[in-house]
Design a protein around this nucleic acid. Sequence first.
DNA 1: CCTACCGATCGGTAGG
DNA 2: CCTACCGATCGGTAGG
Lengths: 221, 221
Amino acid sequence: MAAHDRAGADVARTSRRGPTPGSDAVSVDVIKQEATRLFAERTYPAVGIRDIAEAVGLLPGSLYVHIRSKDELLFLIVRDGIQLFLDAIEPVAHVAAPAGVRLQNAMGAYLAVAAEHQQQTRVAFHQWTYLQGDQRAVVVELRQSYEKLFADIVAEGVDSGDFRRPRSRRLAVLTIVGALNAAGDWFDPSGSMSVDDVAADLADTALRGLCEGTAYAQADS
Amino acid sequence: MAAHDRAGADVARTSRRGPTPGSDAVSVDVIKQEATRLFAERTYPAVGIRDIAEAVGLLPGSLYVHIRSKDELLFLIVRDGIQLFLDAIEPVAHVAAPAGVRLQNAMGAYLAVAAEHQQQTRVAFHQWTYLQGDQRAVVVELRQSYEKLFADIVAEGVDSGDFRRPRSRRLAVLTIVGALNAAGDWFDPSGSMSVDDVAADLADTALRGLCEGTAYAQADS
DNA sequence: CCTACCGATCGGTAGG
DNA sequence: CCTACCGATCGGTAGG
C-alpha cells in the first residue's frame, strides 16, 4: 500500500517536471518561448529566473543546464526577433517597383511579422536596452540594418521624384518607423481589422496624409 | 587638533547630506527629479531605492521621510508627466481653426513638452505599465484624455471635409499618436533641428503624406 | 535535472 | 535624517 502510493507519486512527479524517459526533455526553445511571454508581459528586470523555471516546469537551478545566463536568454530573443523582420522585409523592399508600392509592401511585411510574433516583437523593440557590451552592439547593428531598409526606400522615392522632398529624410524615416512600431504594439490580430486592412491604412497615412485632395499641398506650394 | 579635525568633518558631513540648519532639507521635488532621471536611464525595476538615495545624498532609509514608497514615486512622475501634455495641448486643440492647423499646433505643443521634459516623457509614456491598482487606473484615464484630444481633431477634420475619410478613424489617431510618441523618444533638443522644424515635418507627413503631388491619390480615387 | 545552498541585493521599518 | 536591521528575493553554482 505504502509502496504503491510511492510509485504513483513518483510517476506523477516524473510526468509533471522530470525529463520523461522516452519523451523530449525541456528544450532551449521552450525556455525561450516562455521567457518571451514573461518578458513581454512584465519586462526583463521584473521577471525572475524562478518565474521562467516555473513556467517550463523546472526548478530554478536546472534552467542552467540549458542556458548560460538570464541575459543570454534576452539576447537570443531580441536578436532572433529583429532577424524575423529583416528576413520578411528585405525581399519586398528590394523588388523592382515604385517606392510607394515598396513602402506599402514593407509595411505589410512588418505588420505580418508583428501580428504573428507579437510578444517577441515587443521584447525585441523595447527591451534590447537592457543588453550591454557585445550583445548590445550586435543588436544595435541589426536595428540599423532594419532602419536602413526604410531609409533606402525613402531615399530612392525622393530621388526618382515619386516622393516629395521632405525637410529631413532621416526624420521622415523615423516617423514612418515610429508609426509602424507603435502599430506593432497596439495591433490586435484577433480584432476586426486584418493585417492587410491595417497595412493599407498605414500606407495611406504615410503616403497621402490625412488631408482631402490637395488642400494642404496647395497652401505649401 | 583632533577637535579641529572633528569639527571640520562634521561641517563637511552636514553640508554634504544632512538637513543643514537654516537651509532647505532635501525635498520631495529633488527626489522626484533624480528618480525621473534614473528611471528614464535604466527603467523603474532596474533602479533601486539605494540608487535614488545616493543621487540625492541621503541614506536609503531616510528617503522614507519624504516618500511613502517606491511605486508612489513612479506614480507621481507618470501622472504629472501626462498632465504636462494635457495642459499644453488642450488650449491649442480647442481653438477655432481648421483641423489641419489644430493638428499641426497640437503636434508642436507635444514636441515642445517632450523636448523640455525629455526624461519625464519617457517615463510617463513607457513605464506607467509598472503601476497597478488605483494608480494604474488613474493613469489609464489620463492617457485616454490625451488620446481623445487627437481623436477629436481627426473626427472634426473628417466631418468638416478637411480630412479625407480614413478606413478607420481610430487607426489614424493611433498612427499619429504613435509617430508623435516615437518622435519624443528620438528628438534631440541639442541637435540641428528645432522643435518647430520637427513639428512642421511631422505635420507634413501626417497631413500630406510622402507622395509627390496627387500621384498616389489618383491611383486610389 | 534535483538538492541544497551561496553572497548580494531588494524595498522597507523601529527606534532614536 | 541616521543607525541598524528585517525578511524576501535575486542570479547563479557545486555536487550528485
